[in-house]
Amino acid sequence: MTHFVKKALADIRLNRFLNLITIITISLSILVVSVFLLFFENASRVIESWNQGGRAMIYLKSDFSLDMLPDLKAKINALGDIDDMVFISKTQAIDKLKKEMSSRTTFLETLNENPLPDALEIRIKTYNSFEEVQKFAQSIKKIEIVEEVEYGQGWLGKFLKIFNLFKITGYGMCTLFFLIALFITANTVRLAFYSRKIEVEVMRLVGATETFIKAPFYVEGLLQGFFGGILGLMVLLITYLSVSSGIDQSLASYIYFDIRFLSLKIILLIIFGSTFLGWFGCYLSLKQILK
């Protein structure tokens, strides 16, 4: 094994330029992919925090009366996994509001009738995405006595649509760059193979097995993929560090938005992915050459 690694390293050194181009191409692709991942990881987290961890307000119609409450609770519970459910009567709501606003205005005191609806505040126990919350809310809305379900669907929903559009673009870009990197890697292996045509021929003649002949190419592909991945992530990290230190801290806290770097899991996944890319490019091209 060390023999093959040594050989592959020697070959990379020998074909410095070609290998450098390949590694840079792979790292660029990895950079594009990881920028998208960075964006999505952060955006999802921010959406979650804006959504306050799956919280939703259920506003009830005015003909609701307290004796309907147990039946309603049962219905909602049947729809999904609810963490906790708090009933807030319109009286409680207006009192709370009055307390909060008393220092500023006496407007509420002048009202004859309570304009607020009865409400239930719920928190959904397990949910993976904003879409799940959305679906759940829609099914609650179908219950007779429910007037409206509030979970920030208005502007958050619109943001989500844009976000999803980004996501699709992201997937498309990632696929495109993956294919480009794959093509370049496969091509490099092909060139390396042809530049070593005599060597391969001689190896066959002196009794080398196909595995022995192919192994250095695979090691080379794996190394290219691995180093390409590391390089791409390093560029991303450096960019991230210089950008995030430049962001105005008060602005960041105001919009509740601190950009975090990729999680370790994603980093390992990216490196694994790019290494696989190197291997796969090699596999494709050797399969084609050694038909």
Partner: peptide, 12 residues
């Protein structure tokens, strides 16, 4: 798959 082993018997 056996060819390499045949060739190892030869020195050319």
């Amino acid at each position: 798959s056996k060819l390499p082993f045949l060739r190892r018997r030869f020195g050319m």
